[in-house]
């Protein structure tokens, strides 16, 4: 099966000298097309750092990373940006909706930077796509609402619609339910589940919440910047 992500010896350090911390410490990871991988681990173990590296948001890391079979190291900033824009969708704990834009314009944000994407060239089809996404996330007809008037769960659904706009092959989620109450969080988890199941979307979600893992096809565990065996002891990979 085709590998969507292949990382070897991924490493990331913050700081210098005695204050130095290894946020990622030799992570080997493979994600196949169509998988739903949950990366579970306590706060501070390096999940967000890992996701930033995997999504090409953070290029200052050690090790090798292939995305969709392509070594990202030689890619220019613009080429990597284009790859992110067209093939990867991001969902964050803090939603990161733009407060000055309506729901519709928030969802359309990726279209600004991918002009030659076929889905963007056709303005009409793009508008229909937004309506379709709004409907799919249960916010049909609320395209003109401003984010400030929406609940956390609604905002996260808008953020998911934004991530889905250009029909990416890979969805990367960082604590997507972290800011939501249990019930709303569950709805979001189900939305991911549906995307994965119905559209065969490849999903990597990092979280410290077990319920995300419940819908995943595979669960990885992370401690102190490294992936550990699910049932193994904490110190399998030399955690302090």
């Amino acid at each position: 099966m085709e590998l969507v992500i292949e990382g070897k010896g991924l490493a990331k350090r913050y700081g210098e000298g005695p204050g130095m911390r290894a946020a990622l410490d030799g992570v080997d990871i493979e994600v196949k097309r169509g998988e739903f991988v949950a990366v579970l681990g306590p706060s501070g173990c390096g999940k967000s750092t890992l996701l930033g590296v995997l999504g090409g948001l953070d290029r200052s890391f050690g090790g090798k990373l292939w995305l969709f079979g392509e070594d990202i190291d030689p890619l220019s900033d613009a080429a990597l940006a284009a790859l992110r824009g067209r093939r990867i969708g991001f969902v964050f704990q803090a939603f990161h909706l733009l407060g000055h834009l309506s729901t519709r314009d928030n969802i359309l944000a990726p279209a600004l930077f991918s002009r030659d994407h076929q889905a963007v060239a056709d303005r009409r089809a793009l508008g229909d796509r937004v309506d379709h996404l709004l409907h799919e996330i249960g916010l049909g007809g609320r395209g003109d609402d401003m984010p400030a008037t929406m609940s956390g769960g609604e905002r996260q659904r808008v953020a998911i619609a934004r991530a889905m706009l250009l029909e990416p092959e890979l969805l990367l989620c960082d604590e997507p339910t972290g800011n939501l109450d249990a019930e709303t969080g569950q709805q979001i988890v189900e939305l991911f589940h549906r995307l994965h199941r119905d559209q065969n979307m490849t999903v990597v979600a990092v979280t410290h919440e077990l319920r995300v893992a419940e819908v995943a096809t595979r669960t990885l565990h992370m401690r102190g910047g490294a992936l550990v065996d699910e049932d193994g002891p904490r110190s399998v990979r030399g955690v302090e």
Binding site: G55, L57, D77, A78, A81, A82, R84, G85, R86, F90, H96, L98, A109, P110, L112, F113, S114, R162
Partner: peptide, 16 residues
């Protein structure tokens, strides 16, 4: 900063 970062995530290059 966050807005710029978000645009970067959804496909904007540094030059953009």
């Amino acid at each position: 900063r966050r807005e710029i970062a978000l645009y970067r995530a959804v496909g904007a290059s540094a030059v953009d």
